[in-house]
């Protein structure tokens, strides 16, 4: 292994030069394959921005989902309240039960429904004590709500409703669709790069034939093409990287860092754009490498 590595480093200038010459010789093909990568990367970047932010939104919403648990009117003593809290928190999946006294409940009611209900303030308050229960997994919120309803001292329990869980599952579907679409685009880019490399191989047919004749290993023959593929991929990723940084910064500034409300707070420019740029560069290089591997392996293995 070690002499292999040594050989690799000794021959590296040779490989780099071969790759460079080939890139320039096939300038137009390089450009077309790079632009395929570029388009893929721009879309990938847009999707990553959406996914990254949607994930952030989902986390925010999920954090906000709490079960509103109204206790029976028989529960008035502090001791009973403490015991209720205890029982609710023992249900698996429950993170915390936050007490909300009936005065607090009325205040929330007034906030929501209007000043007219302020006549009930004081002794006439018809509401019961309640808890706000937060859960650690929003997918299980329905089961947990039902479990709480079963408890003896609970009058009723409800959560934000189906609209929120619907939103979360919609976001998951969108994420899934995006992944599939991206995979298809990536495959297209791989195909285009592998075609470019195929052209490069054919134009260097003589060289390769001589290399094989004098006993160059398959890997040695492949390395310049692999480098070439990676360079094509990375050239294609440069412009999307620049667009990502300035585009996202512009959007972030224009929207004041949030989408309508602060529940939908956008990801901060740094390190979010940096992460996306890294993914684009690595993705471009990998797509190029894969394309080169496909065509060189095809070419080198159909004969001995």
């Amino acid at each position: 292994m070690i002499p292999y590595m040594m050989n690799f480093f000794k021959s590296f200038p040779f490989h780099l030069k071969s790759a460079g010459v080939s890139l320039i010789r096939h300038f137009v093909m390089t450009l077309s394959a790079s632009s395929a990568v570029m388009i893929t990367c721009i879309l990938l970047s847009a999707f990553l921005m959406i996914v990254g932010n949607v994930n952030g939104f989902a986390d925010n919403i999920e954090g906000d989902i709490r079960i509103h648990v109204v206790l029976n009117d028989t529960i008035q003593e502090e001791e009973q309240i403490a015991q209720s809290k205890n029982e609710i928190e023992q249900i698996s999946g429950v993170l915390e039960a936050e007490f909300s006294s009936k005065d607090n409940e009325l205040k929330l009611w007034i906030e929501e429904k209007g000043e007219i209900f302020s006549i009930y303030e004081g002794e006439d308050n018809p509401l019961n004590h309640a808890f706000f229960v937060s859960v650690n997994d929003s997918e299980r919120i329905e089961t947990i709500t039902n479990q709480i309803k079963e408890l003896e001292m609970v009058d009723d329990a409800m959560y934000g409703g189906d609209s929120i869980t619907d939103l979360i599952s919609l976001l998951n579907t969108v994420r899934f669709g995006i992944v599939i679409f991206m995979t298809l685009l990536g495959l297209l880019a791989v195909f285009l790069i592998s075609n470019t490399i195929k052209m490069a191989i054919y134009s260097r047919n003589n060289e390769i034939m001589i290399m094989r004749n004098v006993g160059a290993t398959n890997l040695f023959i492949k390395i310049p093409f692999m480098i070439e593929g990676m360079i094509i991929g990375m050239i294609g990723a440069i412009i999307p990287c620049i667009l990502t940084f300035f585009g996202y910064r512009y959007l972030f500034m224009a929207m004041n860092g949030q989408l309508f409300t602060n529940v939908f707070a956008l990801q901060p420019i740094w390190p979010f754009t940096f992460e996306i740029m890294c993914i684009l560069m690595i993705g471009g290089a990998l797509v190029g490498l894969l394309g080169a591997l496909i065509s060189t392996t095809k070419y080198l293995h159909w004969r001995r």
């Binding site: 094989r212 004749n213 004098v214 006993g215 290993t217 398959n218 001995r304």
Partner: peptide, 16 residues
């Protein structure tokens, strides 16, 4: 009987 990957090394024995 040479494996595909060993052919290049073998070929170093032969000039054409």
């Amino acid at each position: 009987k040479l494996r595909h990957s060993k052919v290049p090394l073998y070929r170093r024995n032969i000039g054409v």
